[in-house]
Design a protein around this nucleic acid. Structure first.
Lengths: 217, 217
DNA sequence: CGGCGCATTGCACCAAAGGACAATGCGGCC
DNA sequence: GGCCGCATTGTCCTTTGGTGCAATGCGCCG
């Protein structure tokens, strides 16, 4: 699909703030700094568009009519836009900052914000995103492929990544070894991998919390 | 080494605060809630002791003579105590809270703190630690086993988890397939796993950033 | 020097995985 | 009813992986 272009489209900063004047000022500042800027007057304005998927980040105000910044953050997380979020707000209160950070915000700044500080925060956020971008895209692809597996195939996959032998999986599912082989072949095709190792990697990446391990002992 | 005892030694809350009265009050409150408490008057008092390794968490004041809470946090991270840190401070300022959270604090509360809120934070922190504890122990074990591999075996392992065939690994290392088989057997023994799947899991857990994936396409 | 750990291999053999070709049964959908 | 996706199997054959047994060569240490 995507012809691998490394044209490094300059990062897009998505600014969501209900204060027109402030938004304009920030946009100008960021453009001067070399970023592409898209601005939105409300959470809804941002959410109606399809999730952007290039490099970039979000700059959110906390207090806004309609859904506020934190709510928008949750929505963004749910939707899975890959963008890191920087909050930029007038009356930063500790509780809110803690909540925002705990929900994965990249930073939380308080107006008035020093120009250098803002740019530094953005640079950090973009850098962080760059690290996550490729892997998150990869995960999305995997999830798509996984979704094409039939229920039975998912069961077999489960067995395979557990290290079970075909005959064991067969016994477990109450079918024959031959059947398992058939499913396995299908799985390898659908998941687009060509080794068990890759399959294990892939299915590990699919599990919710990447941290998990197997203290099975 | 460690005889697996599941005696669930009640969690220890380490309270570091320079305010004697406050410390005493908190300690009392926590003891009543069923926790074991150790209190320290300063960062130094905490750091001189060996890092505790049972279940528990840290409750830190931010403003203290000598190293302050944030500095103590850094020291604790460097030292690798496995304990989650909750900040509890009088004049919480957003910048500090953000910094604390970014450095991995479990929570950041502002005095005066609601009793329930504090206990909830502690419960959450302990729960979080519990999750991390087992996997971090598991990783440590893996690292130990990995360390026993000879350089050659590590190379072979690399190939195996990449999904390479024995013959390919052999070609890569310039030896025979038989040799690879020999190494593989040794690896499975030393790493204490009995399937390639487990091996892949294990070696993935060994890599620094657990997030990593393979956008090898 | 002799022992030890490590890397290397050969041969034979068995077990497991995978591909080829083919076929059956079931439940939905047009 | 006929087509299709999904699950199921069978047989046959090839490729890989894994083991047992045995042996060689090298560098290091006491």
């Amino acid at each position: 699909m995507t012809p691998s272009r490394e044209v490094a489209a300059s990062a897009v900063i998505h600014v969501v703030d209900d204060d027109d004047a402030f938004r304009a000022a920030i946009a100008r500042l960021l453009r001067v700094a070399g970023y592409e800027v898209k601005d939105y007057r409300s959470a809804g304005d941002y959410l109606v568009d399809a999730p952007p998927d290039g490099p970039g980040c979000l700059l959110l105000d906390l207090h806004m009519p309609g859904p506020d910044g934190l709510e928008l953050q949750e929505a963004v997380l749910r939707r899975g836009d890959g963008l890191p979020i920087i909050f930029l707000t007038g009356h930063g209160d500790v509780r809110q900052s803690v909540r925002a950070m705990r929900q994965g915000a990249a930073d939380f700044l308080v107006k008035p914000v020093n120009r250098e500080e803002l740019l530094a925060a953005i640079r950090a956020a973009l850098q962080r995103q760059e690290r996550e971008l490729s892997t998150s895209r990869w995960r999305r692809d995997l999830a798509e492929r996984y979704a094409t597996l039939t229920p039975r195939e998912k069961q077999v996959l489960e067995g395979v990544v557990t290290g079970a032998l075909n005959k064991q999986i067969a016994a477990l599912l109450g079918t024959s070894e031959r059947t398992i082989k058939a499913h396995r072949a299908k799985i390898m095709l659908k998941m687009r991998v060509d080794s068990v190792a890759e399959l294990v990697h892939a299915s590990a990446a699919l599990r919710p919390r990447g941290a998990g391990g197997k203290p099975v002992d």
